[in-house]
């Protein structure tokens, strides 16, 4: 588990968190076939607790599952506006980290999504469209080159 790419990830998200002032940054990675390709939050920065470790998402479930399945970013300026509170329990990471404003982008490897990068604030309306766009262009050079990097521990 402790190969060099892990260290990179942790550093990258810590840097991102400082750079943009996010409350929480995390990366979910697809697990190998033996684990039925589930998604788990592997790297976190600014977490409140260790609940993220328990979360195991299937494709289409939760924040990471949806980004993974659709290959499109999710952007919620205000969680309460974007989601029905009755539906919120389906997004455990939002509840566990008490996120109020968040965005998530797919990380590509070849033509497949291999991970999801989530950034969020614990107060509503803090992640504006502008910041989210700036963030996306900022991560291009770092995470855009994923297809040449071997990320998943085999």
């Amino acid at each position: 588990m402790n190969d060099e790419s892990n260290v990179d990830y942790q550093q990258e998200i810590d840097t991102l968190r400082n750079r943009f002032g996010f409350d929480f940054v995390s990366i979910a990675l697809v697990q190998p076939a033996e684990d039925q390709f589930v998604l788990t939050w592997q790297y976190v920065s600014g977490n409140l607790n260790k609940r993220y470790k328990r979360i195991v998402l299937y494709s289409g479930k939760g924040v990471a599952g949806i980004v993974f399945k659709t290959g499109k970013p999710i952007f919620m300026e205000d969680v309460n506006m974007g989601l029905d509170s009755k539906d919120l329990f389906n997004y455990p990471i939002i509840i566990a980290e008490q996120l109020q404003s968040l965005g998530a982008v797919p990380l590509w490897k070849g033509n497949r999504v291999m991970g999801v990068l989530l950034v969020g604030f614990r107060h509503g309306n803090q992640l504006t469209e502008d910041i989210f766009e700036e963030f996306q262009s900022e991560i291009e050079p770092v995470f855009g080159s994923l297809d040449t990097k071997e990320m998943v521990d085999q």
């Binding site: 589930v38 609940r51 993220y52 328990r54 979360i55 195991v56 998402l57 299937y58 479930k61 939760g62 329990f89 389906n90 455990p92 990471i93 509840i95 566990a96």
Partner: peptide, 8 residues
Amino acid sequence: VEKNYGFL
């Protein structure tokens, strides 16, 4: 439940 919702 634990996996899907991080609920113990």
